[in-house]
Amino acid sequence: MIRRVSTVLFSLITVIASAQTYDQDFTGKVVNVIDGNTIEVENENDEVIKFILSEVDCPEPGQTLSEEAKAFTEDLILKKKVQVELKGKDWLGNRLAVITLKNGTVLHEELLKEGLAWADRKASSTSSNLEASAKAKKIGLWTENEPTPPWIYRRQQTMMQAKSR
């Protein structure tokens, strides 16, 4: 009985300890860039964790500048050590994070400066101002009169899918 309790207790502690890696900011290495604002980071326990950048949304695959946003993100952070500052989860359960390079460069701010992302509606004033600046300069997304935001593009794609009966 004691052996069984200690085994269960050890298993519980292991689960709690591994779950804590997702609840704390950490430094890790970027091992994959899925799209402009979705990346995978390997932590010190060799676990690969997927994050979506907080405060921004980049064009979806198939949209104008989606490949440019992905390439920009890859050039800036792929295979580099970064600081991951956790910001909770989105409504789909995806982990949100602010990603900062060793030199202090904040990834989502750079995407906004280049006109490769939209600022989230709940974003900080810094992010909103960076988006407004890119719009004023007519760079990136803002070379178009009315670029389609990714959240509208995703909804349109869902509506075009055949419905099952």
Rank of each mutant, 00 (worst) to 15 (best):
K50S: 15
N45S: 10
G62W: 03
E47T: 09
H108L: 02
C58Y: 01
P149R: 11
R4W: 13
E109P: 05
V82F: 03
L76M: 12
Q63K: 09
L96F: 00
A117W: 01
E47F: 06
N45G: 01
D23S: 15
E146G: 01
T158H: 13
L107E: 01
E110G: 04
S18Y: 14
I49N: 02
S66A: 13
G88W: 01
L65K: 07
S6P: 00
T143F: 00
M159H: 02
A136I: 02
G28D: 05
V8C: 09
K81N: 15
Q161E: 10
T38D: 04
I2K: 12
I139Q: 01
A162V: 10
N145S: 13
K102D: 14
G140N: 08
E55A: 10
I39M: 04
K81E: 15
E40F: 00
A119C: 04
V98L: 06
S128T: 06
T126K: 11
E47Y: 05
E44G: 09
S133Q: 11
W118L: 02
M160R: 15
Q63L: 06
T7D: 13
V41A: 04
Y22C: 14
L112Y: 06
S164R: 09
Y22R: 13
T105W: 01
T64Y: 14
S54M: 08
S66T: 07
A119G: 06
G62R: 06
V41K: 01
T158I: 15
A132N: 11
R155V: 11
W142A: 03
F26A: 09
S133K: 12
T7W: 10
T73Q: 03
E110I: 02
S127C: 10
V8N: 11
N37S: 15
D46L: 07
N32K: 09
F72H: 07
K135S: 07
V82N: 04
E74S: 11
L116A: 01
V15S: 10
F10G: 07
L130N: 05
W118S: 03
